[in-house]
Simulated scan of single mutants.
Amino acid sequence: MAEAAAAPAVRAAVGDSEFDRDTAVTRRGPGVYDIDLSAGWSILGAVNGGYLLAVLGRALGDALPHADPFTVSAHYLTASRPGPAVVRTETVRTGRTLSTGQASLFQYDDEGNEVERIRVLASYGDLDALPGDVRTSAEPPAIPPAEQCFGPEDGPDPLDGVSAITERLRLRLDPATLGWALGKPSGRGEMRAWFGLADGRDADPFSLLLAVDALPPTAFELGLKGWVPTVELTVHVRCRPAPGPLRVSITTRNLAGGFLEEDAEVWDSADRLVAQSRQLARVRLG
């Protein structure tokens, strides 16, 4: 059983937390949704890719006959900014156990032109209907107890607006993956942490879409600095997470040509692998 991470005295319920409010979309008409992207989930002024995935995931969960994301593949076309946005969805196919749809998020540029920010293709189903048979060689990541790990509050005070998302998360980073913060990156391309939302809300399938993209980039442990924008991100949600903290492990094995991959695993408090992802990201060299 996983060690419990420290939680706030009062826990927000699923459906009534800051994450739920900030990812909620308003249906304008069939397949069209409005949202005001919150600045609270931004990094260096750009909205976090996992938060955006949850926003589009919520829209598709409303538009499709099945409610739970099984696989979500996103291409990030241009950087999203806090403020008004429109999500347009389309049902591609519906079946008895799976439904497939696509969604795009649009904003307006300074000249008033509509710009597509992100495009998603996803399949949805019913996680509660999955059989319980599990045959796996995967093992939970070895992370020290939360009280032996470190959060943003343990470092120097951040600059205002640099990483607003950290205030909405409860991250406790494995010391073995924190060499970059001490000016001594390990070169191993690994990042591991306990993960939760700051208001104590338990995880659900949509917050898993955030969790795979919420840790510091593995590029930091490779000795690189600065923004690492996502080009493409695919997430597989494997089962509904149990209440309690999550453990997230992310690895990079190959940085070449200014791009790297990040493979993430998310484990719940019952030691189950609840989500996996792979993304391609761009890095700035030199």
Rank of each mutant, 00 (worst) to 15 (best):
residue 74 A to L: 04
residue 79 A to P: 07
residue 80 S to A: 15
residue 80 S to R: 00
residue 81 R to N: 02
residue 83 G to H: 03
residue 83 G to Q: 02
residue 84 P to Y: 01
residue 87 V to D: 00
residue 89 T to Y: 04
residue 90 E to F: 04
residue 91 T to Y: 04
residue 91 T to N: 07
residue 91 T to E: 14
residue 93 R to E: 10
residue 96 R to W: 04
residue 97 T to G: 11
residue 99 S to V: 06
residue 100 T to Q: 09
residue 104 S to D: 09
residue 106 F to C: 02
residue 107 Q to W: 00
residue 107 Q to A: 00
residue 109 D to C: 01
residue 109 D to S: 02
residue 110 D to I: 04
residue 111 E to C: 08
residue 112 G to I: 04
residue 116 E to Y: 05
residue 116 E to L: 13
residue 116 E to Q: 14
residue 117 R to A: 05
residue 120 V to T: 13
residue 121 L to R: 10
residue 121 L to N: 12
residue 122 A to L: 07
residue 122 A to M: 05
residue 123 S to W: 00
residue 123 S to G: 09
residue 125 G to E: 00
residue 125 G to I: 02
residue 128 D to K: 15
residue 130 L to Y: 09
residue 131 P to M: 09
residue 132 G to W: 09
residue 133 D to N: 14
residue 134 V to C: 07
residue 134 V to T: 14
residue 135 R to V: 15
residue 136 T to A: 13
residue 138 A to E: 13
residue 140 P to L: 11
residue 142 A to K: 12
residue 145 P to G: 03
residue 145 P to H: 07
residue 147 E to Y: 12
residue 147 E to V: 10
residue 149 C to V: 04
residue 151 G to C: 07
residue 151 G to N: 06
residue 151 G to R: 05
residue 153 E to K: 13
residue 154 D to S: 15
residue 155 G to R: 14
residue 157 D to I: 11
residue 159 L to Q: 13
residue 159 L to S: 12
residue 160 D to P: 10
residue 160 D to C: 02
residue 162 V to I: 15
residue 163 S to I: 14
residue 165 I to Q: 03
residue 166 T to I: 09
residue 166 T to S: 10
residue 166 T to V: 13
residue 167 E to Y: 06
residue 168 R to G: 01
residue 168 R to E: 01
residue 170 R to D: 12
residue 172 R to K: 09
residue 173 L to M: 12
residue 179 G to I: 12
residue 180 W to R: 07
residue 181 A to I: 06
residue 183 G to S: 11
residue 183 G to Q: 08
residue 184 K to H: 14
residue 184 K to R: 15
residue 184 K to D: 15
residue 185 P to H: 10
residue 188 R to D: 13
residue 189 G to C: 05
residue 189 G to R: 03
residue 191 M to I: 09
residue 191 M to L: 08
residue 194 W to D: 02
residue 195 F to Y: 10
residue 195 F to R: 00
residue 196 G to A: 15
residue 198 A to N: 10
residue 198 A to G: 11
residue 201 R to N: 08
residue 201 R to H: 08
residue 205 P to W: 02
residue 205 P to V: 07
residue 206 F to M: 09
residue 206 F to L: 15
residue 207 S to H: 07
residue 209 L to S: 01
residue 210 L to N: 03
residue 210 L to M: 11
residue 211 A to C: 06
residue 211 A to W: 05
residue 211 A to N: 06
